[in-house]
Design a protein around this nucleic acid. Structure first.
Length: 1083
RNA sequence: GCCGGUGUGGCGAAAUGGCAGACGCACGGGACUUAAAAUCCCGGGACGGUAAUACGUCGUGCGGGUUCGAGUCCCGCCACCGGCACCA
């Protein structure tokens, strides 16, 4: 650790931060805004002291960071990595003559503040504001050139009024599949039976959007199905129909419920069956929720990825998440077990519709599987098993508590063992739970823990759960915890008592199916992934007919088929699908080869494209042709059609929390008492959350907002929606608010939007570098790949369709910064104790060194470990820069003055004197060459985001300049311009001093024109060219720069060190790459 | 399992198909100093060789290939990191 400061950054850095603040140096000006007199931006672009129109302003450059959640822990060194990169580019672009928009704000709604509020009763706003203040202090101490006048926080009512406004835009719009875009709900046409006013006119039935389950499900829930209703409630039905089409709609679907967080979560927030935040268990639970129709935009979200510059991996993540697959829907007619045709509710129910991407394997479909939740299940199950049904198909439980010893001890209080039991059909019965409760059964993190006769019995099936034992020990305050293996009877007790298992055959298909459905729905996703390594399922007793060959095939239910994908049903082709094969093997179902694998590969289980066999009229066709032929055949017969499916689900948009945006929605009841919702008028915004003293959910499990009875109930009898929006809402559009952050009349003005988002950029392209539309550069971590970045693209497209923004995409270029690891090469975390706090680094080395090191570590996108010695290295470099400019003797005087001074004072810096080696003389050619090489490298590297090599180029310059007896003013001045984006405080201080020393008024460094290099100065009169013999490097020759090939060849042939390799050999060929190398090929 | 990315000194890393290891860290030597720190200068891929030079051989995860020439391009592996994961 250095005992003495390399240079007085502690005085320099606050001094310039104050100056930039006071002079509003980095204010970005909107079209129509008046630029203050004398502001350096106005001076540079001749718009000072007057309002500048969009055409008078220089081209825009909009560069942004992902705004942070202001946590109580403060900034860590990962945050400023991206911030530094964008700040360097912002400063560089300003110098290049762009109007740079570089803002910062706060994603300030969030769980920690709310959890603190639940515990202490303190309003989350208090915590949030304190954290914002701390983050602001930390970020400002790094000297970033943000335009702080545009600072925003998603928790600010003046911000979230527009978040609510955008929600209303979604609420009042629908997706028109014919135009493939969002339109105002007023353009929605009612189907004929609801269009009472114009029954005589011919009406197009509203076409279904690309088949999304949510859509058809809600449409049916809303009652617009085929069954007719009394004409009296036509109005209600019209409303229900309209509500079912909105981009923001209410759905009763099963959602991920997290008990520990007390809220539901979106699919994207659930990772490995646990909540992304906190890692708590989640379960599937049907609830009424607000959902946004992102699936309607799946195709455009996918297609437009081709129009933006993101990394391949990021685009790929989004593609995977959207998960488009092409295939066919095929109808399988039902057959009753008795052999008669099935006729429950009408013509639509006579078949089961499946989705498959391999219609060419239809002849290999030997059974069908429905998801346990499939709506047809109950209707198709017969009273009795068909004769000859194997016992294994009847849902027989066949658990063998095969106990694998994991760890053991004697005479302990806790016994546990690994259960490898097939829990098929087993669920904790209410009776069993009562018994368990009486005996102090507890559920610990979804794992049953059973206390009986002074012994805790823990059945686990995953070695990973061993980690749990420590927490369990703490939680139970059991000391001297010892382990022993659970005995077989221990396990038996858990299975019988907890799961209510009885080793008996299910007596009827109905019971077997009911038991399996309960089992499947009761499993949390955690249990599903950890316990269900083996396939489970049960035969329904019903059969269907394979439409291509008339075969009778059994229908099963199994939880490996998801209700939420495709049609919730599949045709199983065990010959060519690994999951179906696994299932077929377990239950002894027939396997048939219908695709011939290439020679040498087994056709059973062959998943790739091959040639159709055993498939009647498809035989001999390659897979692609077989697909086309069978699809056409199905369509001609009316048995199926080509279909596209997506993995993407609609976006669950409501949370049961206090600290989020309230929905601008009220609920009323129609004449028949049916509740319906209504959007608030814009004039009611912002809708503020009510004041509460208790932030917990209500006793009846309603969200916290329900506690505010006065707030919830309106005088006219309506009640407010009590859910709130998720944290992602505010971050979906903040990049638009920055453009016009103080606008009270609109979320952004048209002028600001079109200028900054680049629709106007073609109007003023006086610079060769053209502006990109949208955000020019967005830098942030990969963790938002499918959350924020997908949601924001979706909102942007809706706003675009509705005419509120002018570009189809928000972020045209995006770069992911790499993770910074701790000094031990591990991910930084409190528990590892390897977290580096930027505050500490700043105290010791200053902001400039910190910034420089963050960039010097390696390429921005790479993951790399922190190394404090590395900071010292760049800090030393800055010290060398300092000493190039400052007379060392004057430093002694300065230090003495500083010791005497009672408090730090920037005036003390005036004791410093410029280094006497700097003189206003013309530079030597060698000096110019060093400088211009540096300009070239730094400029080119900045254009390609190669900060680390730009810094090393400056180090090379400093190492050279260090040896100069005389340092020309002009050269040193230009160098400071190159340094300024990286180490702005030091550069500003030296810039000011340098100019004053030479009797000049320092021009604004931030807006001084970026230096350009003269290629002529870089040309060598002589050059060194490596000489190779047979591709091996042997010598280096010197020739004049304009030497022709003949001269080069002759010189190379004479090269001394090459001689031993040429002697006695015939030269077959001489390859000369101009200015690069010579290769002599001998034989 | 599928998709994407990355493998170069003791470490972070450089290298439009053309002298591998720029720059920095750590390390070693020297100057300055009573001494240390700081600073300045010099040296560091490995092996062989030499008093030290010189010089030679090998060397960019592994195995092949294309090329006068490969860290870079192609084919096949291996390892690590990230994402997805019963999506029909």
């Amino acid at each position: 650790m250095s005992s003495r400061r390399q240079y007085p950054f502690d005085l320099i850095e606050p001094k310039w931060q104050r100056a930039w603040d006071a002079e509003q140096t980095f204010r970005a000006f909107n079209p129509g805004e008046s630029v203050p007199d004398g502001h350096p931006f106005g001076v540079r672009h001749s718009v000072a002291g007057k309002p500048a129109s969009a055409a008078q302003l220089p081209p825009k450059f909009y560069i942004r960071d992902m705004f942070p959640y202001p946590s109580g822990a403060g900034l860590h060194v990962g945050h400023p990595e991206g911030y530094t990169a964008t700040d360097i580019l912002a400063r560089y672009r300003r110098a290049k003559g762009f109007n740079v928009l570089h803002p910062m704000g706060w994603d300030s709604f969030g769980l920690p503040a709310e959890q603190y509020a639940v515990k202490t009763g303190q309003h989350p706003r208090v915590t949030t504001e304190a954290n914002i203040a701390n983050f602001t202090r930390q970020i400002k101490s790094l000297g970033f050139s943000y335009d702080w006048s545009r600072e925003l926080a998603t928790t600010d009512p003046e911000y979230f009024r527009w978040t609510q406004w955008i929600f209303l835009q979604l609420y009042n719009a629908w997706f028109n599949p014919e135009t493939n875009r969002a339109e105002p709900i007023s353009t929605l046409k009612f189907p004929e039976e609801l269009d009472g006013a114009r029954l005589s006119e011919p009406q197009q039935a509203t076409p279904e959007a690309a088949s999304t389950n949510s859509e058809s499900a809600t449409a049916q829930a809303a009652g617009c199905g085929s069954e007719s209703r009394a004409p009296g409630d036509l109005e209600s039905r019209r409303r229900a129909f309209r509500d079912s089409k909105r981009l923001a709609y209410v759905s009763e679907q099963p959602v991920w419920w997290c008990e520990d967080l007390g809220t539901v979560l979106a699919n994207e927030e659930v990772v490995d069956g646990k909540s992304e935040v906190g890692g708590f268990p989640v379960v599937r639970k049907p609830m009424r929720q607000w959902v946004l129709r992102i699936t309607a935009f799946a195709e455009r979200l996918l297609a437009d990825l081709d129009t933006i510059e993101w990394t391949d991996s990021l685009k790929e993540m989004q593609r995977n998440w959207i998960g488009r697959s092409e295939g066919a829907e095929v109808d399988f007619p039902l057959l009753m077990a008795s052999g008669g045709r099935f006729q429950p509710g009408g013509p639509d129910d006579e078949r089961i519709r499946v989705f498959t991407t391999r219609p060419d394997t239809l002849f290999g479909a030997t059974y069908m599987v429905l998801s346990p939740e499939h709506k047809l299940v109950e209707q198709i199950v017969p009273q009795e098993w068909p004769s000859g049904t194997p016992d294994a198909w009847k849902g027989q439980r066949k658990y063998q508590p095969a106990i694998t010893v994991v760890e053991s001890a004697t005479a302990g209080q806790i016994a546990f063992g690994m259960v490898k039991a097939d829990l098929n059909g087993l669920v904790p019965t209410p009776e069993a739970l009562k018994v368990m409760t009486a005996e102090r059964a507890i559920r610990f993190r979804a794992v049953p823990v059973y206390y009986r006769e002074s012994t805790l019995i823990v059945a686990i099936s995953n070695p990973a759960d061993l980690d749990m034992m420590d927490s369990l020990r703490n939680e139970l305050s059991v000391e001297n915890l010892e382990f022993r293996v659970a005995s077989e009877s221990d396990i038996e007790r858990i299975l019988v008592d907890f799961y209510g298992a009885k080793p008996s055959l299910k007596p009827s298909p109905r019971e077997a199916v009911a038991a399996y459905r309960t089992y499947a729905s009761g499993k949390s996703d955690l249990e599903r992934t950890e316990l269900a390594k083996e396939k489970t399922g049960v035969f329904t007793g019903a059969y269907a007919i394979n439409p291509v060959n008339g075969e009778k095939i059994p229908i099963w239910i199994a939880d490996y088929v998801l209700a939420s994908y495709g049609t919730g049903a599949i045709m199983a082709v065990p010959g060519h699908d690994s999951r179906d094969l696994e299932f077929a093997r377990k239950f002894d179902l027939p396997v048939r080869v219908v695709v011939q694998a290439p020679a040498g590969k087994d056709s059973i289980g062959f998943l790739d494209d091959g040639v159709a066999v055993n498939s009647d009229f498809l035989n001999g066709l390659p897979t692609a042709e077989a697909k086309a032929k069978i699809t056409a055949w199905l369509e001609a017969k009316g048995l199926g059609k080509k279909t596209i499916n997506y993995k993407l689900r609609d976006w669950l948009f409501s949370r049961q929390r206090y600290w989020g945006e309230p929905f601008p929605i009220v609920w009323r009841r129609d004449a028949s008492g049916q509740p319906y919702h209504e959007g608030l008028p814009e004039s009611a915004l912002p809708l503020l959350p009510p004041a509460l003293t208790d932030y917990k959910p209500t006793a009846s499990g309603e969200p916290p907002l329900a506690r505010a009875k006065d707030w919830v109930s309106l005088p006219d009898g309506a009640v407010r929606e009590v859910n709130t929006m998720p944290q992602w809402a505010g971050s979906c559009w903040y990049y638009l608010r920055y453009l016009d952050a103080k606008n009270g009349n609109a979320f952004v003005s048209k002028e600001a939007e079109s200028y900054w988002m680049g629709s106007l950029s073609t109007l003023n392209s006086q610079l060769s570098t053209k502006s990109t539309p949208g955000v020019d550069l967005y830098v942030g971590g990969t963790e938002h790949a499918v959350l924020h970045l997908l949601y924001a693209r979706f909102w942007h497209k809706v706003l675009f369709d509705l005419g509120h923004v002018s570009t189809t995409e928000p972020f045209f270029k995006l770069v992911n910064q790499g993770l910074i690891l701790g000094e031990d090469g591990q991910k930084m975390s409190k528990s590892r104790g390897n977290v580096v706090n930027p505050d500490d680094v700043l105290v010791e080395f200053g902001a400039d060194a910190f910034r420089l090191y963050e960039m010097f570590m390696g390429p921005l996108q790479d993951t790399k470990p922190w190394n404090t010695r590395g900071v010292e290295g760049v800090y030393r470099f800055l010290g060398r820069v300092w000493r190039l400019f400052i007379e060392e003797k004057s430093e002694t005087a300065f230090e003495q003055a500083q010791t005497v001074a009672t408090q730090p004072d920037a005036d003390l810096l005036d004791h410093l004197v410029m280094n006497g080696t700097i003189a206003d003389v013309s530079a030597t050619p060698a000096q110019l060459k060093v400088l211009h090489a540096c300009i070239k490298k730094v400029t080119e590297d900045l254009d390609h985001l190669r900060f680390n090599t730009a810094i090393s180029a400056m180090m090379v310059f400093v190492n050279e300049a260090n040896g100069w007896q005389t340092r020309p003013f002009s050269v040193m001045r230009t160098f400071l311009q190159l340094l300024a984006p990286f180490a702005p405080h030091l550069a500003e201080e030296l810039w000011a001093r340098l100019h004053r020393t030479f009797g000049q008024n320092p021009p604004s460094l931030g807006y001084a024109e970026w230096p350009s290099y003269d290629p002529a100065l870089l040309v060598e009169s002589e050059m060194e060219i490596p000489v190779s013999v047979n591709g091996k490097h042997r010598d280096v020759i010197r020739v004049s720069a304009d030497a022709d090939n003949a001269t080069i060849e002759a010189t190379a042939r004479r090269a001394e060190k090459a001689q031993p390799f040429l002697e006695g050999k015939t030269v077959r060929k001489v390859i000369i790459v101009p200015k690069k190398m010579v290769n002599i090929v001998v034989g």
